[in-house]
Design a protein around this nucleic acid. Sequence first.
DNA 1: GTGGTCTAGACCACC
DNA 2: GTGGTCTAGACCACA
Lengths: 117, 117, 117, 117
Amino acid sequence: MEFDSNKAIYLQIMDGICNRVLSGDLKAEDRIPSVREYGAEIGVNPNTVARSYEKLSEAGVIYNKRGIGYFITAEAKEIIAQEAKKQFLEEELPKFTERAKLLGLSLEEITTEMKKH
Amino acid sequence: MEFDSNKAIYLQIMDGICNRVLSGDLKAEDRIPSVREYGAEIGVNPNTVARSYEKLSEAGVIYNKRGIGYFITAEAKEIIAQEAKKQFLEEELPKFTERAKLLGLSLEEITTEMKKH
Amino acid sequence: MEFDSNKAIYLQIMDGICNRVLSGDLKAEDRIPSVREYGAEIGVNPNTVARSYEKLSEAGVIYNKRGIGYFITAEAKEIIAQEAKKQFLEEELPKFTERAKLLGLSLEEITTEMKKH
Amino acid sequence: MEFDSNKAIYLQIMDGICNRVLSGDLKAEDRIPSVREYGAEIGVNPNTVARSYEKLSEAGVIYNKRGIGYFITAEAKEIIAQEAKKQFLEEELPKFTERAKLLGLSLEEITTEMKKH
DNA sequence: GTGGTCTAGACCACC
DNA sequence: GTGGTCTAGACCACA
C-alpha cells in the first residue's frame, strides 16, 4: 500500500477504512484484520495501525470484542457519512470554490473538468 | 501577522508573497523586504523568513542581488499561476470529485452549493 | 571528517553521499544514518545534516519514511550521474577549454598533461 | 553586464580585466575607467569596483597615477599569464581530469568535446 | 546594510 | 527512536 508522506499514516489508514465502509465494501459487524495482520499486510508498524483503530473506536465506527478482534459498528456508515458530509459542505467545498475563483476558473470549467472523472 | 499553526510558517510566508504577486500588489523587479526587516515586521525569526525566500528563489519567483536584497522575477506571476493551476486541476479537483462521489453527492448538488459562495 | 572551509558543509555532505552512491557503496533502498547519528559521527550539527538530506530529497536522490529514516531511491544513481554529466559537459568543459585557449595552451599540450594524471 | 551570482562580483570584475589583458584588448599603459565610470557602466557599486582595482594593484597588474586614473602595468600580461598558467596546470587541470574520470569519460570523448569549442 | 551558513537547543508529530 | 520546524544568536563575505 502506498502512502502520501505528507499526511500521517494513521490518518490515511483511518480514511481507507472509512471509505471502504462508505462504499459498502465493509458492512456492519464485518471483522477487520488485527493490527498485526493489517500492519504486516500494508507494511506499517502495528503501533501505527493500533492508533488508527483506537481513533476509529473513539468515533464509534468500530468496536472491540476482547480477544477476538475489531468489528464495524451498526452505526458506522451513518456516522461516517454524516460527519463526512458536514465537513465536506462546510469546509472543503467553500475552500475549493474560493481556490477556483482565485485561479480564475469559472463554474463551467470546473463542472466540465469534474465530469471527466 | 497571524499564522495558522497547522501549517509551517515558512510556507505561509511563501503563500503570502505568491498571493501578493498574483493580485498584482508585487510586480516584476519589485524588491521585497530583507529577511531581518520582514521578520521583525511579522514577528518571526529572520532564519524562517530566509527559508521562505530560499524556496521562492529555487522556484524562480524571486532572485537575489548580492548585498542588496531579493526581487520579484519577471516570470514570477506566470510561474505561480501555472503551478497553482496545475496542482488544482491534477490533484485537488480529482480528490474533490472522488470525495463527492463517495458521499453520494450529485454534480447538481455540488454546483448548487458552489453558487452560494 | 574534514571539510573544505571554502565550501558550505551541507554541500560537502551532499557530495559525499552522492559519491558513495556513484561508487556503489550506497545502493537503492539502503538506509542512510539519521541526522543525529550522522551529525555526531562527522562532528556537525544535526540541523546541517538535515539541510543536506532535505536538498537530496528534493533532488530525488533519497526519500523519507516517516519516523524511520532516509533511504536511497531507485533512481538515485541515474539522477546523480545524469546531473553530473550534464553540468560537466555544458558548464565545466566549455569554461575549461576557453580558459586553456586564453592561456595559449594547445589541445596537444592539454592532453599530454592530462595523461600524466 | 551580467554576473554569476555564485561568485563575488569584485572577483568577476578582476577576471574580466585580466582576460582583456591576456587577450590583448588591454595593453601596457592603457588607462582603465575610473571606479565611478566603470561602476555606472556595468551597474555595480563603485565601492565594489574599487575593491577589484585595489586587488589588481596589489597583484601588480595595474597601477595608480594620483588624480588621473588606473593604468595597466608593463608586466601585467606576464604576471597574469604566469599566475594563470600555474594555477591552471596545478589546480584546474588535475581537478578537471579527475572529475572526467569519475564520470567515466575517456580522454577521447573529452578531446572530441573540446574541439567543438 | 544584505544574505548565507552554522550552532545549540527546543518542541512537535509520528513510528 | 525518526524527521520537521522554529528560535536565538553568532560569524562571514559582500555591496
